[in-house]
Design a protein around this nucleic acid. Structure first.
Lengths: 232, 232, 232, 232
DNA sequence: TATGAATGAGGGTTCATTCAT
DNA sequence: GATGAATGAACCCTCATTCAT
C-alpha cells in the first residue's frame, strides 16, 4: 500500500516560510498587477494577499499599510529608473571626457531608448506610478523620489551644455518638461493605447528634442509684434 | 374655473427650474473644492453635500454617482480648455488667412499664455483633473474629452505647418508631447510647487518650442555612429 | 382579485424610520442585554445591531463608538440610581425637618430597599456597570458619574449625623464603603449567585449598618495592646 | 562507554528545568505590568512576549491561552491573599486559644493592616484582579478562588463570635460585605485615586467595623414605624 | 424636489494562535 | 524547548447609496 504522504494533504494552505526578501517581492508583484489593472482604491488587501499566495495578515508583516505598498512600488520604480538613467548618463559623460567626437543625437537616442525600454518592460508599474493619486504622507516621499530622477536628467542636460554638445538655457526646466512629456505619454500609450503608436511618439519626441537642443542654432530675430490677439 | 394661483405657480416654477442648473453648479463647486484639497477618495458625499448646502440625497438627483461628479468636473474643465484653445487657434488662423505676416513665436506665446492662464485660474480643477485616478468606466469618457482637446492642438500645429509658419513632421504626436509636458508640470507646480517657479517653467517651454518648431532650420547631417553605448 | 399589498413584500428588511429617541433606546437595550450576558469585548457590533433590529451603520448614527455605547449605559444607570437615591434622601430629610421622631433604622431600610430594588430591576445593567473594565477615555466620565452618586450618599450620612440621627465620623468614606459593599455584592449575587441569597445579604448589611451607625454608643475603652502579632 | 559529557549535561539540565518555573514567573510579571497599565484587552501577546524577553510562541508553552495568563495572575494574587490572611487568623486564634485577653479591635487592625499592606504592595495585581472583566470560562475558576478567601474571612468572624470576641449574626455575609468594601475601595484608590486618601478610608473602615462587630451592645428597641415613605 | 435616517457590503487592520524550523 | 513568520477570522468602522417621508 502506498503510504499517504503528509505532503499530499497539504496541497492547499500549508504554511510556507520563505526568505523575507522573496515574500516582499511576491507581495509587491501581486500588488503591482492588481493596482495597475484595477486601480489602487479598487483593489482590496484581500485580493493582494490572495494573488501573492499569502494571508492578509502576512502583508502587514512587510508593509505597515496599504499606502506603504503603493509607496514601495513607486520607490522601486523610480530608483530603478534613476539607476538606469544614471548608467547611461555616466557612460555618455565618460565618452565625452574621453574626447570622443559624439553626435548629440546619438546620446538623446540612447537615453530615450533606455527610458522607453525601462517603461515598456514595466508597463504595469508605469500606470501605478504615473496615475495613482498621491495621498497625504505618501506625497512627500513620492516627490523626493521624483526629484532625484529629475536632478539626474537635469545634470545630464547641464553637462551636455557645458561640453557644447547641446544648447539649453535652463537644464532644470528642460528636465521637467522632457520627463513629463515622455513619461505621461508612455504611460498613456501603454495603458490606454492613446497614442496608440508608441514608436511614432518616441520618434516625434526625438525629432523635437534634436531641434530643441541643437547647438549653434541662430534663431531669426523676432519681429515686433503688430497685433495683439487678446487683451486681458 | 381656473384658479389664478396657477399663474403664480408657473412663475415660481421657472424659479424652481432655473435653480436646478444652479444647484448642479453649486454641487460641482463644492465637490471641486473638496476633491482638490482632500482628494477624491478622501472626500465623502456627506462633506460635498454639506459644503454645497444640500442634503446628501439631493446630489443623487443631479448625478448618478460620486464618480459621475468627478467626471462632470473633468468634462467642464476639458471643455473649457478646448473652448479657450479653440478661440486662440481660430483667431490665429484668421490672421494667417488674412495674410498677416506673423511671427510664429507670438502665436506660441499666445497659446501658452492662454493655457497657463486657464490652468492657473482653475488650479483646483487642475489637481482634480490631472491627479485623480482614472477608475474603470470613467476612463473611457475621460479619454474622449482628452482626445477632443488633443485634436484641436494637433490641428493647430498642422495648420501652422501648412502655412509654413512652423515646422513639424508629426502634428498629432507633437500635440501629445506638448500637452503632456505643459499640463503635467503646471499641475505639479500648482499643487506641489515642484517646479516652484511656474513662470520660469513656461519660459523654458516657450524657448524649447520656439526651436523645436522653428521653420527652415537646416539640421547638420548626422555622423555615422562610431560607438554603440549598449548592445541589447 | 386581491391586490397584493406592498407591505407583504416587506416583511423582511423594510426600512423603518423611527423617532430617534426610541431608536437610541432600542440600541441601548440590545447592547445591555448582550454586554451583560456575553461581556463587552465578547459582543460584536454586528450582534448589537441585529438584536436592536437595525443595521450596523445605524448604531454609529447614535453613538460615535462601541465604547460610547457602554458609557451611555453606565450613564443611564448611574443617573437613574442617583435620582432614585436623591428622592429617598430628600424625603427623609423632609421628615426630619418636619420634626418627625424617626428611627434611623427605618431610613436605612428605605435606602437599602430602594437601592436593592433599583439594582434588582436592572440586574443586566448592574453587571455591565460594575464589571466591565474601564478603558482610557471612558474612565474619566465613568468616575464623574460615580462621584456624583457618592456625593449624594455622603451628604445623606452627613445630614443624618447633623440631626443626631446617626453617628459617623467620616461621611465620605462611609459612603464609599457602604456603596462598594452593597453594589459589589448585589452585582455578584445577581450575576453569579454568589452570595446566592440576596435577601440574607441585605439583611446582614442592614444589621451591620444599624450598629455601625448607631448614635450614642459608648465604645469600651481600648485596652493597651499586650501582644504584637507581627512586626514588619 | 559512558561519556563524561552526560554528567555535564545533567548539571545543565537542572539549569534548564529550573528556569521553566522562572520563565513562567517572568511571563506573568510582564503580563501583570502590561495588563495593569494598559488593560487586558489592550495588551497584545506580542507585547507580553517582548516585555518578558521571550518569543510569542514561548508563552503558549506555559499557558494555553491569553485568558489563562490572566487567570494565573488572579490565582497567584488570591492564593497569596488567602495565605496572608490565614497566617493572621491562625495567629489570632492561637492567642485566643491560649486564653489571652485580647481586644478584638487589635485583631481587626491586624487583619486590615495585613490586607491593605498586601494590596498596596501588589497594586498592579489589584487593578488586574479587581477590574478586568470576567469572561466566560474564566469566571468559574475565578469564583472558586474568591470563595476560598471568603471562607477564610467568614471562618475568622465565626471563630471570633464563638469566642465572644465579636458579635455578628451572619459571618458569611459579613465576610462578603467587608471584603467587597475594602477591596473595591483599595482598588479604586490605588488605580484611580478615588478615594484619594487610602489611610483615611482604612481608618473609617476600621471604625465602622469596631462598632459593627462590637460585642455586648444593646440596641435600643425599634419603635413602630409611623410613616411609610413609599408603598410598592 | 428635497431630505437625511437607514442601510450593509466592504474596507483596512489587528492579533491570538499555530507550526515549520 | 524556543522561535517568530504566517495565519485568517474577526474586529470596528465608513460611506456610497437608497428610500420613506
Amino acid at each position: 500500500m502506498e503510504p499517504v504522504r503528509d505532503d499530499v494533504s497539504s496541497v492547499l494552505k500549508r504554511r510556507v516560510v520563505k526568505p523575507s526578501e522573496q515574500r516582499r517581492a511576491e507581495i509587491l508583484e501581486a500588488a503591482l498587477k492588481l493596482f495597475s489593472s484595477k486601480g489602487f482604491h479598487e483593489t482590496t488587501m484581500e485580493e493582494v494577499a490572495h494573488a501573492a499566495g499569502v494571508a492578509k495578515g502576512t502583508i502587514y508583516l512587510y508593509f505597515p499599510s496599504k499606502e506603504h505598498v503603493l509607496l514601495a512600488l513607486k520607490r522601486d520604480f523610480m530608483q530603478g529608473l534613476t539607476t538606469a538613467g544614471a548608467d547611461i548618463v555616466a557612460e555618455a559623460i565618460e565618452l565625452l571626457e574621453g574626447g570622443k567626437d559624439l553626435d548629440y543625437r546619438d546620446i538623446i537616442d540612447d537615453i530615450f531608448d533606455a527610458v522607453v525600454d525601462y517603461h515598456t518592460k514595466r508597463h504595469e508599474a508605469v500606470e501605478v506610478v504615473v496615475r495613482q493619486s498621491p495621498s497625504p504622507d505618501l506625497m512627500r516621499e513620492a516627490l523626493d523620489l521624483e526629484r532625484e530622477y529629475l536632478a539626474l536628467v537635469a545634470s545630464a542636460f547641464r553637462t551636455g551644455a557645458e561640453y557644447g554638445l547641446v544648447h539649453t538655457e535652463d537644464p532644470e526646466m528642460t528636465a521637467h518638461l522632457v520627463t513629463a512629456a515622455i513619461r505621461d505619454n508612455i504611460a498613456s500609450s501603454l495603458c490606454y493605447e492613446e497614442p496608440a503608436d508608441l514608436e511614432r511618439l518616441v520618434e516625434a519626441a526625438k525629432q523635437m528634442l534634436y531641434k530643441a537642443l541643437a547647438p549653434n542654432v541662430e534663431m531669426p530675430p523676432r519681429r515686433p509684434r503688430l497685433v495683439r490677439t487678446k487683451s486681458d
